[in-house]
Design a protein around this nucleic acid. Structure first.
Lengths: 166, 166
DNA sequence: AACACAAGGATGATTCGTCAACTATTCCGG
DNA sequence: CCGGAATAGTTGACGAATCATCCTTGTGTT
């Protein structure tokens, strides 16, 4: 009825393909992690971020920014992980509102256990199908798109609320 | 400690970039849909699949395959959509176990209302940053990866359970 | 100093997705 | 025609994500 600016064929192929691919990959990886470790994919991402730090610790809000997670999700998730002994929460002295998340021994051993299988799966399901040029293409595209999403001081879309930006 | 076959730089850039990009895009699109319509992103996908059919109807399992959703998720979601008057469920005569999902008037009008804004967002956030070559690259990569994921009669990874395939 | 306001997090209700188990029908081999 | 398997879909329980709200501490203004 209404005539809309639909996607043309290559656009649709790229967009839908990407979406479907991503969903299937994540599901497959989640499945693999669940099967071969005690970690969910989310757990894995948190632990990766932490273990990449030399001291294995991050402020909650830093972790949230790294993962692009909402603070509420992060708070809930970290609490669950804490209950399972994968991380600890420690108060922060410099800013007494804040807290650190610290990976525990158990957390480290779990991710060291999980990583090889996970990485193998990432290769098998995804990376192995790409050549170096494609890898680069993807990397570049992702960077571009992410950069455009990022609020590098942008007013996002405060159209009619452009009343009082001090 | 354990030395694992970590991703090298271009691999990591591509893989993490893609993941992050996808998450951010979906969040942004979900946000946009929520703001400008009554539909969630999932609702939108269901309605697109249905309205692409000339008769606006699909068997549940067909819909499930199209979206790559688990049947349980689909069942729950369609029930919720039915309660909101976006779709109907109709029994199937040829196979009396089965059922059709049919888009309603209301469903149609909601998606016709939502589509322009959504497509505009897809363009603004994603497609506009790509040239034709990149579009093609992405499409091809997605196809390849999806093909390798698909169980075209494959035994997936039944390694040691290769005992009794009748 | 006193105030409002922003930032870092936590919490509880609700919604959504997944898992396992279940019903009903159809398919197929004897 | 019968009995077991596979298929279509539902259901309930649980884990996970989101939303709005709230509490505490920092920051900045006057």
């Amino acid at each position: 009825m209404v005539d809309v600016d639909w996607l043309n064929e290559p656009e649709e192929r790229a967009w839908r393909g990407l979406q479907l691919m991503q969903m299937r990959l994540e599901r497959e990886l989640a499945r693999q992690l669940a099967a071969e470790s005690e970690l969910s994919y989310s757990d894995y991402l948190v632990l990766v971020a932490l273990t990449e730090r030399p001291d294995g610790r991050l402020r909650l809000f830093e972790l949230g920014e790294l993962l692009s997670w909402e603070k509420s999700r992060l708070s809930h998730h970290v609490s669950r992980m804490e209950k399972r002994g994968l991380v600890d929460k420690e108060p922060c002295d410099e800013d007494r509102r804040g807290a650190f998340v610290v990976v525990t021994h158990h957390g480290r051993s779990e991710i060291e256990l999980a990583a090889p299988g996970h990485l193998a799966a990432v290769r098998r399901l995804f990376l192995d199908h790409l050549d170096a040029g494609q890898l680069d293409q993807i990397g570049g595209i992702a960077e571009t798109v992410l950069a455009s999403l990022n609020p590098d001081s942008r007013d996002s879309d405060s159209r009619e609320s452009a009343i009082g930006p001090p």
